[in-house]
């Protein structure tokens, strides 16, 4: 069994925290993992992505082949589209639907909606709003992870919760609780869609 995931967004949106948590959960579950990420120049407000590969078999390549990703998890709607050539035929896109506009030629809302209408499996949400309602606007990335959790089924939802507790433990109990709450909200929303 394998699960190939592309995590993407704009530099500074917290996609590497999502990768860290999935990585921690995979390690605890004794599942093989490779996670390639982008450092350096791209972090400055540019597009960022991470290839995350989970498998019960040996993983060779650090990169996901074209057409091989089971899941694209994106903090930004246009960024998810950038990696579509990597999405498998029956792959799922889980994304924030709130544009991050820091370029002059960002596409119009209806054009974006049209592109999404052509994709078979999309789970989308205003994750910042959801995080705000869950009590911590800064944990929108955990809402997104919660929404994606049912599709990362090589690792259980409980294992991801445990990993959130472990990863945020050094920041104190309040931070752990806030992130868990955001994650749970995401899971509930993901199940509804």
């Amino acid at each position: 069994m394998k699960k190939d995931i592309i995590l993407c967004g704009v530099g500074g949106q917290g996609i590497l925290s999502i990768a860290t948590i999935i990585g921690e959960a995979a390690t605890q579950a004794d599942i093989n993992l490779k996670q390639a990420e982008v450092h350096g120049m791209s972090q400055r407000g540019g597009d960022v992505q991470s290839n995350l590969r989970l498998s019960t078999d040996t993983i060779y390549s650090d990169l996901i082949p074209l057409g091989g990703a089971d899941l694209i998890i994106s903090m930004e709607p246009m960024e998810a589209l950038r990696y579509l050539p990597y999405l498998a035929q029956d792959g799922v896109v889980v994304t924030s639907n709130q544009p991050f506009v820091n370029i002059p030629d960002y596409p119009e809302a209806d054009k974006l909606a049209e592109a999404y209408s052509k994709l078979p499996h999309v789970v989308e949400l205003d994750i910042e709003q959801a995080a705000h309602e869950a009590g911590n606007a800064r944990s929108s990335n955990m809402v997104l992870l919660g929404m994606a959790a049912p599709y990362i089924n090589i690792i259980g939802v409980d294992q991801l919760r445990q990993a959130i507790s472990t990863v945020f433990a050094r920041k104190g109990e309040a931070v752990v609780e806030a992130n868990l709450k955001a994650f749970d909200a995401g899971v509930a929303i993901g199940q509804k869609q």
């Binding site: 540019g46 057409g67 246009m78 589209l81 950038r82 579509l84 050539p85």
Partner: peptide, 17 residues
């Protein structure tokens, strides 16, 4: 090998100061 292509509307997002 790709079932899906990048839509034309996707704009480059270069790094910035």
């Amino acid at each position: 090998a790709s079932p899906f292509a990048v839509p034309d509307i996707v704009a480059p997002r270069p790094p910035q100061l």
